[in-house]
Nucleic acid binder design. Sequence first.
DNA 1: TTTTGTTATGTAAAGCTTTAAATATAAGAC
DNA 2: GTCTTATATTTAAAGCTTTACATAACAAAA
Lengths: 342, 342
Amino acid sequence: MTAKKVTIEDVARQAGVGIATVSRAINNAEGISAKTRMRILRTIEELGFVPNTSAQSLKVRLTNQIALAVPDIRNAIIPDISWAVEQAAKAHGYRVVQINTAGNARAELEVVRDIKKLHVDGLIIMPLAYPKALPELIDKSGVPISVINYGKQLDDSLQADVVCLSILEGKLVMDHLQQIGRNRIAYAGTQKDVIEDRYLAYERALNRVDASLVYFGEDFSLQTGIRAADYFHGLAHMPDAVYAVNDMVAIGLVNRFKELGVRVPEDVAVVGVDNNQWTTISSPQISSVSIMGSEVARLAAELLLKRIREQTRGDYEKVQFEPRLIVRESSVSLKRSPMHGS
Amino acid sequence: MTAKKVTIEDVARQAGVGIATVSRAINNAEGISAKTRMRILRTIEELGFVPNTSAQSLKVRLTNQIALAVPDIRNAIIPDISWAVEQAAKAHGYRVVQINTAGNARAELEVVRDIKKLHVDGLIIMPLAYPKALPELIDKSGVPISVINYGKQLDDSLQADVVCLSILEGKLVMDHLQQIGRNRIAYAGTQKDVIEDRYLAYERALNRVDASLVYFGEDFSLQTGIRAADYFHGLAHMPDAVYAVNDMVAIGLVNRFKELGVRVPEDVAVVGVDNNQWTTISSPQISSVSIMGSEVARLAAELLLKRIREQTRGDYEKVQFEPRLIVRESSVSLKRSPMHGS
DNA sequence: TTTTGTTATGTAAAGCTTTAAATATAAGAC
DNA sequence: GTCTTATATTTAAAGCTTTACATAACAAAA
């Protein structure tokens, strides 16, 4: 079917030159006359020659691929991150191998431990489980790594560039809720240690945490929001505000509250994080924190590619974007001034 | 930093065997005693040896990678598809190189034309633009290809396995809307030739298309839905139903209609396609057609991997899943019984 | 013409693995 | 203990490219 697999040698023979010359033509290298280059390129076209990427990689020890390990491509802002990484990679001639870890500790360790088997020049990882052994494995991986840090305080000694998706947004949310006069603020998220910083900011903002106002669900889905709403609704003394770990949970909450006859924001204010497009579609529109996922992802990719290009180790960047709170209907102030609106 | 790069030869010397034996140990191949295998594996562990994937690929002419080319990972059901493909690939020891074509004709052609440069054993492509030259390039690609077909009638002679994401859903929607007594049915989508089948089904279901009831937007986003709602609302004679090309558009429509004081479904019924999770969260909940993206994607991947494994050409599968219409609040029948309400 | 300096081209090695063919070893039959 | 046969192991080639080094070609200078 396909012509017998044409190699650089066939091209050389056909064009009447040596294989080194053909190689130079392919790679736009120095030391070849414009005339022969043209002739060779024509021959390549004729024969339909495509350089064998495996042989190239074997020789130059670079694969032109990076790996992107995320928890789950189906969740929240991760598609945005994936998109941004691919755009950046493509601009530098790199391909992206996409890996879903499912937020599973073993999977996160495995991708770092076995990075050498992955045929990539570098790794961007967005951990969720943050297993204990991760920093150590990163240190000894021997491959450039960028970390997209989603809500965890990391040791500065980590041998990787780190771009933080979120650190300060918790404080932003809590300050806002307290400012609009709420004092029974609840938290709806997943386990305490997942996206830890968001929960910790909640704790820090309060003198004393009322355990009954903290709901930990299974994941960051709409379902978790719905269940959280049911839970809060069932309490003897309901919260007057909920800080949701992300927009999906916030939307689930708001919709379920509506069904239960709880008014948002009159009875309960709700704020999410991520600022995804659904926050403006939901009714009421939902206040959220923009964490600039695309920008973060692009930067993580650029840092990685720079490191691959320059072959540098050490002196790692630790970058943090400033999040922005966008106040919408779900958390407008009520006592402010009735004629002022939002 | 990293130990000088240990090769199979180092392992062989250290373990006191030949390199072929080491290779057999790595690949769990025949013709090696359990005892030496153990010894070699121990040595590999000791030295931290990792086989060089480039050298392996060069020799066996397989890369253990497939490419997945989708329009845009950020849209609609594409994350589901990406997830499903990766799961299937992983189960067979394959990695996935993710590519976004942005629904761009040139990008779609390029990925097929340059597939050989991509270091993959096969390709799953979900086209959107369907450029004319695509079938021809697929024919001469020389690499197994699976097509996830999103709403286009394809020639049966295409040299690829084809799994259809949607073909019949348009009829399903139109039948339903007519059955609940709507007779000014509008269409809200992107250009006529993108996801062509959905629009064609609309035409087919009607004796005569009223051009004023067809709205073509820029993309499949919420924005398109919002603009479509504005457009329909501005008509002298509004439609009494809208068939939206997908759920995003449907949700945009419903929300904007609400803002404009148009009642759904009383004044206008709305039906979308994709059955994504937001349809049940929206209020009113939105009727939609489940096109089973995950199943389609998984099948596409399985067919591709089978072909790679068995090295077969020809005799291509053309599979089509049966879509299911899920009726929700946005298109309940009104004439049924007035006291029934919604 | 000879020399010298550039630039273009060719040769051969190296990169690391798999695998066919050759050889060594072990086991079993007699 | 020898012969046969099956199994284990080694050697060497092949897979395709890049690149250091050697050589050739050419132009300019002497």
